[in-house]
Design a protein around this nucleic acid. Structure first.
Lengths: 248, 248
DNA sequence: TGATCTGAAAGTGGATACCAATCTATCAGC
DNA sequence: GCTGATAGATTGGTATCCACTTTCAGATCA
């Protein structure tokens, strides 16, 4: 927990990933400075960090906003996740540690159990974890961090496009993936991964539903000291918007 | 050309990639502020950007330094490049645009011509460009930017470890790679890519050779306007320094 | 002599105040 | 109702100040 700006960036990042801060939300320097009780400069440094990570866009002289990726960019993020994980599969051929597959199998079993209990929420989290475990098999911290960054951007998309997944099919594909890797059928595993992410992407629906914005104070879990600030958000509540359908 | 800190970050980045700033070099805020004629805060913002990119490490209360990756991390960077490009190859199966291979073929021809002329320097640059072109085939800007970032980190390694490449063999492998992609032999293409990067990695030699440090003024190509500044750097004029050979 | 302790200097991290440029929004006038 | 001017708000940046940490050199002591 070195720099204050790092902490603040982490807090904002967490709020974005938890969808307490929705895409397009204004991240005013002054307001954030009051919330975190720091100077504007520290806030700006935090926003710079977040913008380098792709979670925030900074428009000169206009301010920072939670990133609102276009549908085209959303597709590219998923495609890049596919690329990385297909590459990971290709690498597994070099590593004769078949024992590591037990981790993947354990994850699949946990997800199946969660589904059997009707716990979609938990199943969804296990589903995400599967892909982390897969990349973790490389024991390559650079690749793991790269993958984590892509996943953050994917999490952002969940807030922008309503998503409903067929967890049963996703879990089933995870199981088949493990089996293919176990049998060293790399090409088919890669093909399945591609189909898998296409299924995930199909779970996202373009949606007119309003993205309800909470005031920053609530989103960031800080007690609002100056009640005036809550009223400041003059713009409007309904940033609803239809993404002009890309090539998807 | 928006933010000043962006420009400064770009300038420092360029100097690092050109090896005018060697790994481990101290990037003092005050000194950089004088060189670029801005306040320290703008410099700090630039350093934050660079640290998020992995080219600079910031140690709390000690300052910023050009990143000096360990050999382990160097291996991970190359492995991650392999992963991404293997994934790209897997993706090419989805895209029936065989015409795009002409770009790759053109690059290989240019590199062969450069080699025939004995221009190793130029051949090396074409060799790097080949991998950019390969990733560009995906037409995926997210993937392209990811790849570019990895390549920046790889360029940093060139400065840290002496490297001498067998450009002939590298070029030959590029040619074989194109042929395999053309014949849609994805698995073998991926295997070749893996071997290819292992060959590249073998070109790097761990080396105790001193990394000669230039003063920042020269490295950043700025005329020193205030002759006082030249003296201010009281330490000494010879920032030369022998890097204590790491854990390699 | 050599090891350790101490204190000053330097550098980073951050706060505050201030200014210039720009964007925004309201309001007057046509 | 629309356009244009003006005033306010916000950002980008500077300068100055202070607190904290690291570092290094000199003093002290075994």
């Amino acid at each position: 927990m070195s720099g204050r700006s790092e902490q603040i960036a982490a807090t904002i990042c967490e709020a974005i990933l938890a969808h307490r801060l929705v895409p397009g939300a204004k991240l005013g320097e002054r307001e954030l400075a009051e919330i975190f009780e720091v100077s504007r400069i520290v806030v700006r440094q935090a926003l710079i960090r977040l913008s380098e990570d792709g979670l925030v866009t900074v428009e000169r002289n206009r301010g920072a906003f939670v990133a609102k990726p276009s549908l085209a960019e959303a597709v590219e993020v998923f495609e890049t996740l596919t690329i990385v994980e297909q590459g990971v599969i290709a690498q597994l051929g070099n590593r004769p540690r078949t024992s590591l597959l037990t981790e993947l199998r354990g994850n699949v079993e946990r997800q199946k159990a969660a589904l059997a209990n009707g716990n979609e929420q938990l199943a969804g989290e296990f589903g995400l974890e599967f892909h982390d475990l897969l990349v973790a098999l490389t024991r390559n911290r650079v690749a793991i961090e790269l993958h984590a960054q892509l996943k953050r951007r994917a999490r952002l998309l969940e807030a922008l496009y309503r998503c409903d997944f067929d967890h049963c099919q996703l879990c089933d594909e995870h199981e088949r993936l493990v089996a293919l890797i176990d049998r060293k059928q790399w090409t088919r595993a890669q093909q399945l991964m591609d189909e898998h992410y296409r299924l995930v992407a199909r779970g996202y629906r373009i949606d007119d539903e309003a993205l309800l914005m909470q005031p920053l104070h609530l989103a960031l879990g800080k007690p609002m000291k100056t009640p005036i600030a809550a009223v400041r958000k003059k713009g409007n509540g309904k940033h609803a918007q239809r993404i002009t359908g890309g090539e998807a």
